[in-house]
Structures are given as structure tokens and as C-alpha cells.
Design a protein around this nucleic acid. Structure first.
Length: 486
RNA sequence: GGCGCAUUCGUCUAGGGGUUUAGGACACCUCCCUCUCAAGGAGGAGAUCACCGGUUCGAAUCCGGUAUGCGCUACCA
């Protein structure tokens, strides 16, 4: 297949995998899969000072968790290896050398101190800050002089002084920049590492990337990249700048908006399918109503044309809703599998799981439709796992009930229940409903009192099923304990 | 400050000159179901389509300007 689509996800391992970043990965992946192309992961570890240990693993684990498999990249290798930019340093410095000898780049010896002062002065004069090109015209002697002083230079690109750079963004349409608003940006840092601009352009070319789908924050850098492609004689890929993801206050999504790392969402018990579905809808839509879509459906219907141009706010409420939908759609076995690790993290639930998986499996259907996250499950089912219920005794006395009537109700229930042979939901209902009438209570009153006695809560799964799962022993003991509290 | 991008219910969005009294979803409210909570069902409220001009018989949709927001303006990506 010729002209096959090749896209890449190029994260920088400077922290944990941010959902905004992962959304970019998702769009790239969907685009590649939709077109039967290749999805490549390339680690852009060119900033030694910001490198974070374990970040690469976090990113890859995040992709794996969401089911975003890559055709080339770390662990799987590929024709264009290596896929870590820190292992491709020679390529970049050779390219920089070539640019210098072509006259498209030059050494710059300016100190960070001078650069800082220059910028401060420019800002003070309300001038746009930017490199003043001092070293662009250094003579041979001046350069030799600087070298003799032992200054390690950086390499800067000779940005054309005039003209315009334009391109057709696949999402935003034609974008035009005047070259004179661009300064002579750095290609190679003094530590020998390339900047994003150089490494990105070189690798996208070498790895034969056909489409660059990246966040909007890169839009302003695109003319620099285009200028580089031209100087290098490379044919540029197509660009598509994705809308950004914002926090609830419309600023760039960050820590203070809550969870931002995909790892955190995983820990909180969001299902990967829900996460993929939700993230896909942030900046992309199929039509005016379709919202619930599987990975396959997303792949099939994904297209660049339907990506929106406006930044999107990450709506946690909607994610919660969607995750609940996905949780409810799970079969009993799938739900058990999914929730098991979360139960193990909760001490009483974990112990129950170890001592009787059957018991836990009986409990799960009662909480499945009430949980929005897997982490919530242990909390919702907590009363199934502990013996000492902790609740306000007053809760046993329902609306329009007296302490006396609550005691009377519990005693009567205790008495009847102890004689009940078949302790299943149907039998319990057949026994308890008439009992309410007998006691002159509304069903809601009797059941409410029993619910608190048996679960310690006013909101819980349906009473009869709950009691059936708890079993006769436990129910009677809890009623006894409730009586003691009144 | 300069440059760039954007602007439809609180939020995600549909819509791209007449089919729109601007549709859907989340959240919110009411009712139904009901032993509570969920889930489900039926409704409701919520957007003068940022603003001002222009083009047109007709504009949320096209054009211009303004405002606002965001991004870039690093030997960070």
C-alpha cells in the first residue's frame, strides 16, 4: 500500500501522562487505525533537566491500558529505530552541521545572561522579545575569539528576514505568518541536545510521518518547522492542530483541576472503554446524537473533518455518567474481574473475597448499577463486609414513628425471621409485607427501619435481596444489635 | 507588547445562507415507577448563536471591525 498513513504520538517524558496528552495520542491512534496506517510512538527526551524517571513507563502503561497499541516505538522497535530521541543525537548534530554549511544556521555564543537582559530591555521598550541576531553576522575572527574563550555555542536557525510562511491546517484552514515575527530560534543546545523544533522535524521526516496531529499550542511553531523543512529540502507532512483541553475555569488543564494523569483515572476505577469514549468526544463528534461508541465504532467513524476548532473543558460529571453506563453494561463475570483489584485494596472487602468469593459474587449485582467508578464499589458494599455497623440510632426510627414502634417492629421482624426457612428475596418479601400491615406501619417505615438495622444506611440496595445475600445469621445479629441501640 | 487561533444552553456538542419556534447529551428541577438509593420512563427550565456593522429577499451560518478567552513569544516541550 503506497501513501499509507503514518502518524506519531511524541510525548516528552517530563511527568505523568496527562489526559490532554493522551487525548492527542487517541486521535492519532484512531486516525491511523481508521486508515489502516501506522501508529508510532516516539519519546522526545531532549530536555535533560526536565526528564522524570518512570515517566516513559507511565506513558506506555497508559496507552496499553486504553488499548492504544503502537506499531513502532519503544519495546516493539521498528524500521526507523531508535525511537528515543536521546539515542539519535548524532543525526541531529549532523543535520545542524549541514544547515550551517549551507548557510541556513549559525553558531551563537550569547550567554543566557545577555539573552535575559536583552529580553527584559525589549519588553521594557514594549518591543516583541526575540533574539537580536547578534551572532548571525560574526566574522571569522570574532568566532575564533569566542571559541578561544571556551564558550560552547548553540546553533541557531537563520530565519528568513522577510516573506511569509503559510500552510493549510487540516482543522483550521489556511494560516499565515509573517517571517519577520519569528526570531532565529535555537536548533541545537549547548549540551549537544536538539530542541523540539529540530528533532521533531528531522524525525518526522526520517520516520516518514504523513500527518502531524498535535495540540493547538504548536500552531505558532509550525512556521518555524515549515521553514526548517524547506531549508532541509524535506517535504513537510500535513498538519492538524487539535483543540486544547481546559479545566473548569477555562485555563489549561492542570493539577488544581483535580485528576489530570490517566494513571489517576485508572486508580479511581474508570474503565478504559469509558475513558476512550469520553476522550474521543472531547473535540470530536460523529453527529448530533451518537455518544456511546466502542473502540471499533470510533475507529470506523473517526475523521479529521469532524474535529472541532474550539478548546474543550474536561467535564468530570459527564465522564462519571458515562463510566456508570459502561459499568452497568458489564456481564457479572466481567464486573467481578474489573472490580476485584479495587476490592482487594479495601481491607474488609479483600478479606471477604479471600474467604468466600461466592459471597462477593452474590453482592456485586446489587452494587453494579449503583456505582459510577470501580473504586466506589467497595464503599457501596462496605456494610456487607463488616460486622460492627456504625450509624446514628435515631435513623432506626422512621418518619412518623416512635422509638417504641421501632422497637416493636424490630422485635416482631426478629421473631418472624428466625422462623423463616427459605431466606431468599421472595420469601422475605412474602413475610415482611404482611408484617407491616400487621404492625400498622407503612411498608416504607418497616423496611426503612430494617434497612438501617441491617445495612447501617438509609440508602442501600433493595432490602430483600440485600438480606438474602447477607443471610439469616447476619441479619438476625444485626437486628439484635439495633435493638440494643434503641 | 507582538503574532496566531477561537467564540452556539453552566459543560460537551449538532447545525456551515431559507427545512430552526436553534437539536442531542451531562448536570439541575418536576412527575411516574418504587421499601430507600440507583437505574429506567415522561416532562421542565436553560442559548436574543460574544458584540457592532455589512453582504443578501433572507445570516447562528458569508465578510469586516471590536471585545473577550486561550496559545506561542525559553539553550521547555
Amino acid at each position: 500500500m503506497t501513501n499509507s498513513v503514518r502518524v506519531r504520538y511524541a510525548p516528552s517524558p517530563t511527568g505523568y501522562p496527562h489526559v490532554g496528552n493522551i487525548r492527542t495520542a487517541l486521535f492519532n491512534w484512531l486516525f491511523a487505525r481508521h486508515h489502516g496506517g501506522s501508529f508510532i510512538v516516539r519519546i522526545e527526551d531532549t530536555d535533560v533537566t526536565r526528564k522524570v524517571r518512570g515517566a516513559v513507563k507511565g506513558i506506555l502503561d497508559g496507552l496499553r491500558w486504553l488499548g492504544l497499541d503502537w506499531d513502532e516505538g519503544p519495546e516493539v522497535g521498528g524500521k526507523y529505530a531508535p525511537y528515543f530521541q536521546s539515542q539519535r543525537l548524532e543525526i541531529y548534530s549532523e543535520t545542524a552541521q549541514r544547515l550551517i554549511s549551507q548557510g541556513d544556521a549559525y553558531y551563537c555564543y550569547c550567554s543566557t545572561q545577555r539573552l535575559k537582559e536583552m529580553r527584559a530591555e525589549q519588553v521594557g521598550r514594549k518591543q516583541p522579545p526575540g533574539y537580536d541576531r547578534l551572532c548571525r553576522h560574526l566574522t571569522q575572527e570574532e568566532r575564533a575569539q569566542k571559541e578561544a574563550e571556551g564558550i560552547t555555542p548553540v546553533v541557531r536557525f537563520k530565519t528568513p528576514l522577510g516573506g511569509q510562511t503559510r500552510f493549510n491546517d487540516l482543522i483550521r484552514g489556511e494560516v499565515v505568518f509573517d517571517n519577520n515575527t519569528l526570531d532565529d530560534f535555537i536548533l541545537l543546545k549547548s549540551d549537544g541536545y536538539p530542541t523540539y523544533h529540530l528533532a521533531n522535524v528531522v524525525d518526522d521526516h526520517l520516520m516518514e510521518i504523513t500527518h502531524v496531529l498535535r495540540a493547538e499550542e504548536w500552531l505558532s511553531s509550525t512556521p518555524r518547522h515549515l521553514l526548517l523543512y524547506r531549508a532541509l529540502g524535506f517535504e513537510p507532512p500535513q498538519f492538524a492542530h487539535l483543540p486544547m483541553l481546559l479545566g473548569t475555569d477555562r485555563s489549561k488543564l492542570s493539577k488544581r483541576h483535580g485528576a489530570v494523569s490517566i494513571t489517576e483515572y485508572r486508580e479511581q476505577g474508570y474503565l478504559p472503554e469509558a475513558m476512550v469514549n469520553f476522550l474521543a468526544l472531547l473535540g470530536w463528534s460523529l453527529d448530533d446524537k451518537t455518544e456511546l461508541m466502542s473502540r471499533e465504532e470510533l475507529i470506523q467513524s473517526f475523521s479529521l473533518e469532524r474535529i472541532s476548532r474550539t478548546a474543550a473543558i474536561f467535564n468530570q460529571d459527564k465522564l462519571n455518567w458515562m463510566n456508570g453506563v459502561y459499568i452497568r453494561s458489564l456481564t457479572a463475570d466481567e464486573f467481578f474481574e474489573a472490580v476485584e483489584p479495587y476490592l482487594m485494596m479495601n481491607i474488609p472487602a479483600g478479606e471477604a473475597l479471600i474467604s468466600s468469593e461466592e459471597y462477593v459474587r452474590d453482592i456485586l449485582p446489587l452494587v453494579q448499577e449503583r456505582a459510577r467508578t470501580l473504586a466506589e464499589v467497595a464503599e457501596l458494599a462496605q456494610f456487607f463486609f463488616i460486622d460492627q455497623l456504625d450509624y446514628e440510632p435515631g435513623l432506626l426510627i422512621g418518619k412518623n414513628m416512635s422509638r417504641q414502634s421501632a422497637i416493636q417492629a424490630l422485635k416482631a421482624a426478629q421473631q418472624r425471621l428466625s422462623q423463616l426457612e427459605a431466606f431468599d428475596a421472595g420469601s422475605l418479601e412474602a413475610l415482611l409485607r404482611p408484617l407491616a400491615v400487621e404492625l400498622g406501619l407503612k411498608t416504607g417505615q418497616l423496611f426503612g427501619t430494617l434497612r438501617v438495622a441491617v445495612t447501617g444506611r438509609t440508602a442501600a440496595p433493595p432490602l430483600f435481596q440485600t438480606m438474602a445475600v447477607l443471610g439469616k445469621e447476619r441479619c438476625l445479629r444485626r437486628i439484635e444489635a439495633a435493638l440494643a441501640r434503641l
